[in-house]
Design a protein around this nucleic acid. Structure first.
Length: 547
RNA sequence: GGCCUGUUGGUGAAGCGGUUAACACGCCGCCCUCUCAAGGCGAUAUUCAUGGGUUCAAGUCCCAUACAGGUCACCA
């Protein structure tokens, strides 16, 4: 009896591996086109980390005229989540991210769900067994535990390798007898490696990294008949003709295993690009952004805040390529699609996730949108997250649009708004329903002088039909009459001669209307709000500030 | 513990043997304007983790040390 008999006994129905080689031929693509893939476990949703990794895969395939596909890695039943696959596909759809091939879309190199590829893996495992390059291992959990303890005691390297690999040289006859006797087993690679040899990973991002050769007899087929990650990676990325494996850098240390698998299977090795993870600060320690622990990792976190998906993509592009940001500022009319991403500009160490930076990107993004666009999205957002505001804005679009248009269609628009929820924060005071709800809108506001002249100003001077220039001239004139300096220099030279600068006068009006020291252009606000309502608010203001 | 990787200002980060050590965000100040922003200008600060070495010259190359991260499963 020989290896062939053993292989036939274990996988009696497996097709010859050459069948799949012809079924999935080389892709016919132009020189330099990258074939990449994003290969998540079906955990049910897309988080920032997966978005980050998939971004590089997507963008590099796209800009080289290549192909990017989605492959679901569901070989672990214990991790299974209900509707896990659907969730991921839905999230990518919502994010407007589309793969060239995948579980839904299909493609010539499918199936794209690993659990549906069982026969393929088994064919290649069978090939290895019949060549004596893999073998059934009958070690029990107990045996492996003892092995480990023994190795720890003797200060040996831990693992199933070399002379520690009890079943690697089991005679074929004995193996066959055990299988016929219904003993449990898994399939291991008979590693030809030597720990004292070196292998070099020539990583597209990190450069050359030297590591010891793999000599572990790693598991390739588990007891449920499904492959381990390592084996599935080698078989799939070969048959799907991946040219560049772009993945998280937690995989760097398993490169020696993967290299060996490609050699043993006589596959051409793809290029690798290992991406450093997004990290987050917890107290003083920095750690990988965790999809379970960190609220910042869920896309829904940003949806809730009212930050558009496009902004998240811009942020990811910024972190992904160190000179994207500079380029984007220099080319404000271009989009992500116009930028050429390269491996050598990707960060080698982890990148700290910075919400401030994200918000600043978001403000620039919002400053480029039209008021109509913001209105519509804000309406959608409010419907989901803020019913009160939704009801206030839904029947009177033009009111909010005119507010949003203040200082918008100019060379350098305002950048107060960084999210759909900011719209309310910015303009709440323009809605009497919201304003009247506040018990003490003018708390802690007082003046060292009597401000009742403001009533005089609004009743007798302010005219909502004035243009901006007339409005301001009249305002200055009035302010001067009640003791304010009209130009800054005069005030600076003799501050004691005045109640304040004209700026201080304006501030009184601004606070009356908005309760805040900062707001969009006051002339526009006053005009949109209307004189009649202004007089009412003025009374409230004077009542509350008059001590 | 073994094997890998990283450590540059308040923050992110460029830099690849010779630079005033970019740029962005933040903070502060000034200017401008008719208010608020925006914009312009400027300031601050890093013995480029520490200690050795190589070199005429070192964030930049080499070696140690410290600290941080990753990885050592029938999980991916």
């Amino acid at each position: 009896m020989n290896y062939r008999d053993l292989a036939d006994l274990i996988f009696p129905n497996a097709k010859d591996a050459s069948f799949y080689e012809t079924k999935y031929p080389e892709r016919n693509l132009k020189e330099g086109a990258m074939v990449t893939r994003f290969a998540p476990s079906p955990t049910g949703f897309v988080h920032i980390g997966s978005l980050y990794t998939s971004f590089s895969n997507l963008v590099l395939a796209k800009q080289t005229g290549g192909v990017v596909f989605l492959r679901i890695e569901d070989t672990d039943h214990k991790r299974e989540v209900e509707n896990g696959i659907e969730g991921i596909i839905r999230d990518f759809n919502d994010l407007n991210i589309h793969f060239d091939e995948g579980p839904i879309k299909g493609g010539q190199y499918g199936p794209y769900i690993q659990s549906e590829r069982r026969d393929i893996y088994q064919s290649f495992a069978k090939k290895l067994i019949s060549e004596g390059k893999a073998y059934p291992c009958f070690a029990t959990e107990e045996e492996l535990k003892n092995l480990r303890e023994m190795q720890e005691l003797n200060k040996e390297r831990i693992g199933y390798y070399g002379s520690w690999a009890k079943y690697r040289n089991l005679p074929v006859e004995e193996a066959i007898a055990k299988i016929k006797n219904n003993e449990d087993y898994i399939i291991r690679l008979k590693s030809p490696g030597d720990f004292n040899n070196k292998v070099i990973l020539d990583d597209c991002i990190k450069g050359k990294i030297e590591m010891p050769e793999n000599d572990m007899d790693i598991v390739i087929i588990k007891s449920d008949g499904l492959p381990t990650y390592h084996f599935a990676h080698a078989v799939d990325d070969h048959l799907m003709r991946t040219t560049h494996v772009i993945r998280g850098d937690e995989w760097v240390s398993s490169y020696p295993i993967h290299k060996q698998l490609f050699e043993v299977l006589e596959f051409k090795e793809p290029r690798y690009a290992h991406i450093a993870p997004l990290t987050i600060k917890e107290g003083t320690t920095i750690r990988k952004l965790s999809k379970r622990k960190d609220k910042e990792s869920a896309i829904s976190f940003y949806n809730k805040l009212g930050i558009p998906d496009e902004v998240i993509k811009l942020y990811i592009a910024t972190v992904n390529n160190s000179n994207f940001e500079e380029w984007y500022i220099a080319n404000p009319d271009k989009t992500i699609d116009d930028y050429e991403f390269t491996f050598d500009k990707m960060p080698i160490g982890g990148s700290l996730f910075d919400l401030d930076k994200l918000m600043s990107i978001s403000k620039v993004y919002f400053s480029k949108l039209t008021a109509d666009d913001i209105y519509n999205k804000t309406l959608q957002y409010s419907l989901e997250y803020d019913n009160e505001f939704y009801n206030l804005i839904k029947d009177n679009p033009n009111y909010l649009i005119s507010l949003l248009n203040i200082e918008r269609n100019i060379d350098r628009p305002r950048m107060d708004i960084g999210s759909y929820s900011d719209v309310k924060k910015e303009f709440w005071y323009m809605y009497d329903e919201l304003f009247d709800k506040k018990e003490h809108p003018y708390e802690n506001i007082n003046y060292p002088y009597d401000i009742s002249f403001i009533k005089d100003y609004f009743t007798n001077v302010y005219d909502e039909n004035d243009n901006e220039e007339d409005w301001f001239n009249k305002l200055k004139n009035f302010a001067s009459g009640v003791g304010f300096a009209v130009n800054r220099k005069d005030y600076k030279e003799n501050p004691s001669n005045y109640l304040g600068n004209v700026a201080d006068f304006c501030s009184i009006i601004r606070i009356m209307l908005t309760t805040s020291n900062t707001s969009p252009n006051m002339y526009d606000l006053l005009k949109i709000y209307g004189k009649e309502r202004l007089l009412k608010r003025l009374d409230k203001f004077l009542d509350s500030v008059k001590n």
